[in-house]
Amino acid sequence: MRYSRSFQVFRMIFRERYREPTLELVLPTMLVANIFLNAYYERSGFQLLGIVLAFVPIISVSETLAFAIGFRNIVYVTGDHIYKGGIISFITTPISRSKIFLYIYISDVIIPLIFWLLTTLAYATMAGISIPPLVLLTFIVGYFFSENIIFTLTLTLRSPGIITLASLFVIGGIFIFGGIGLYYLLLKRSIEELYLLSFMNPYLLWIGQAEGGKFMPIIISGITADALIAIALFVSSFMIFRRLEL
């Protein structure tokens, strides 16, 4: 059977990122790493708080793994190809730059997210834990937000070392200082300012919500802001890639 040229190029790009034994290691680990969901759920007395805590990035091994794979793909595969010129081989295939960008983006960013979503939903179904869709959406949007920042930095800065440092500072800064700021504002009960910072770390608001607070509108506004920024970054990455000179 002969596949289209586009599919062949996509296969090349995909294989470059998921060489054996990447999937063999990542998928089962992601699936099993969800045991923290049970553990936190049990400790919280089977309440929302347990689910929310289990979904906080870094605490959630599965989410951290998805993010790390996305990061590795963007910085150390795509970034390295741009830095060392390996991408020339893909650019000089008879398919458009737009499609190449799309395939790279799917392989680098979307596929790790699909792995995470599938394993998490499979685990939640097996464990009989129903996860609120908005909790899932919080991570999905946050994931695109941070990976798109890295993608834009990669296409702009090109050097993997510099991108790693810049990404750590930018994303770490947003989440850590955002978290501290939101915690302070939560204690102050300063609702208007909470709206302003909500995009920086909506998990803190989720914890407040699980503890009986009424922060759902703020959480939704944070997720919306994250999504809008992620879309803007995606569009800018696309524009940079189309004009990328090698």
Binding site: R15, E20, E24, P28, L31, V32, M126
Partner: peptide
């Protein structure tokens, strides 16, 4: 890409979830 490795790894993961 060989599928067998992935399927075996997933099998082990499911088994460990069931037994733990």
């Amino acid at each position: 890409m060989k599928l067998s490795g992935l399927i075996i790894a997933l099998g082990i993961a499911l088994l460990s979830l069931a037994l733990t």
